[in-house]
Amino acid sequence: MNIAIEQQQGRDKAGVWGPAARMLLGLSLLLGIAYPLAVTGVAQVLMPHAANGSLIVKDGKTVGSALIGQNFQRADEFWSRPSATGGSAYNGAGSGGSNLGPSNPALHKVVAERIAALKAAGPVPVGPVPQDLVTASASGLDPHISLAAALYQIPRVAQQRKLDAARLRALIDAHTEHGWFGDNARVNVLQLNMALPR
């Protein structure tokens, strides 16, 4: 009697492995191969630019991505938001903020240095420096600056390039993106610098 029960239990356990293995294989094919291929295919058809990294190409050469900031330090260019990814390197492999709080003396020191660098590079407007020109973003790779930060840099860029400030203002306006909620106007620095007349 006990032998018959044990044999039946063994057959029951053996019968579970077959359906479990088929389920594992089926879900692996569905969710590990079919679904990613379908999503990739739909993305390539509906939004290929975004699906391929929002790359910016100039003269047949990829110069960057609209999604990842770059380091601009020349006086005749608009500067990006500072990066906390290893100095000013904009290291895409090391995304992250500085983790310096507002009461940290190290943050005060680095902000003061950045303000001094802005003022040393050329003329600046009277008034406070926009916060995003002297503090790093949470990712450290922000490709945008605020509209105020772009406007703040007009005197320096205009002087360096010998351009009319109104022309630069029009260029900034043409490259300003507005947020969905409120007036979170921002400017992609790479695209703005690429549009500057040479």
Rank of each mutant, 00 (worst) to 15 (best):
Ala185Ile: 04
Pro19Gly: 03
Gly32Glu: 07
Ser137His: 13
Gln8Asn: 12
Gly92Asp: 12
Ala174Lys: 03
Asn2Ser: 10
Arg167Asn: 03
Val110Lys: 02
Val124Asn: 06
Asp173Ala: 09
Ile154Trp: 01
Gln73Tyr: 06
Ser103Lys: 02
Ala106Asn: 12
Ala150Lys: 08
Arg169His: 15
Gln9His: 04
Lys13Thr: 13
Ser98Gly: 14
Met1Glu: 12
Ser54Asp: 13
Val63His: 02
Asp76Ser: 06
Leu29Phe: 11
Leu29Met: 10
Asn188Lys: 08
Gly92Gln: 07
Asp132Ala: 01
Ala120Gln: 12
Gln159His: 12
Leu37Gly: 06
Glu113Lys: 13
Leu163Phe: 15
Leu27Ala: 11
Ser95Lys: 05
Met47Ile: 08
Pro105Thr: 12
Pro197Ile: 10
Ala185Trp: 06
Ala21Lys: 00
Met47Ser: 14
His108Trp: 06
Asn71Glu: 13
Leu30Met: 06
Gly140Glu: 12
Asp183Ile: 10
Ala66Asn: 07
Leu100Glu: 10
Gln160Asn: 04
Asn91Tyr: 13
Gly10Pro: 00
Gln8Cys: 05
Gly53Asp: 13
Ile56Tyr: 09
Thr40Trp: 14
Leu37Val: 03
Gln160Lys: 11
Ile5Pro: 05
Ala75Leu: 01
Leu192Ser: 01
Ser137Gln: 03
Gly140Met: 08
Arg156Lys: 06
Glu77Tyr: 14
Gly101Thr: 14
Val189Leu: 02
Ile33Ala: 00
Ala21Cys: 15
Gly122Arg: 00
Gln9Ser: 06
Val110Thr: 10
Gln160Pro: 01
Lys13Asp: 03
Ala174Pro: 03
Ala117Gln: 09
His108Asn: 14
Lys119Met: 05
Arg167Val: 05
Asp132Cys: 07
Arg161Pro: 03
Gly92His: 12
Arg81Met: 05
Asp59Cys: 05
Ser54Lys: 07
Leu171Gly: 01
Pro197Phe: 13
Met23Val: 09
Asn71Phe: 11
Pro128Val: 02
Gly127Tyr: 08
Ala66Gln: 10
Gly96Cys: 02
Leu107Val: 09
Phe181Gly: 03
Gly64Ile: 06
Gly69Phe: 10
Leu171Asn: 01
Gln191Pro: 06
Gly127His: 12
Met23Asn: 08
Gly41Cys: 07
Ser28Asn: 11
Gly127Ile: 11
Gln9Thr: 07
Arg156Phe: 08
Trp17Asp: 02
Arg186Asp: 11
Asn99Thr: 05
Asn184Trp: 03
Ala14Trp: 14
Ala51Thr: 00
Ser137Cys: 15
Ala106Ser: 03
Arg167Gly: 08
Met1Ser: 09
Ile68Arg: 04
Asp132Trp: 01
Leu196Cys: 00
Ala174Gly: 04
Ala89Asp: 15
Asn184Thr: 10
Leu190Arg: 04
Ala166Trp: 00
Gly69Glu: 08
Pro105Lys: 11
Ser103Pro: 03
Leu55Tyr: 13
Ser103Cys: 04
Trp17Gln: 14
Asp164Pro: 11
Ile115Arg: 00
Gly87Phe: 11
Leu147Tyr: 09
Ser88Ile: 02
Thr85Tyr: 12
Gln159Cys: 02
Gly96Ala: 13
Leu133Tyr: 03
Val45Glu: 12
Ser139Cys: 13
Gly60Thr: 10
Gly18Tyr: 02
Arg114Trp: 04
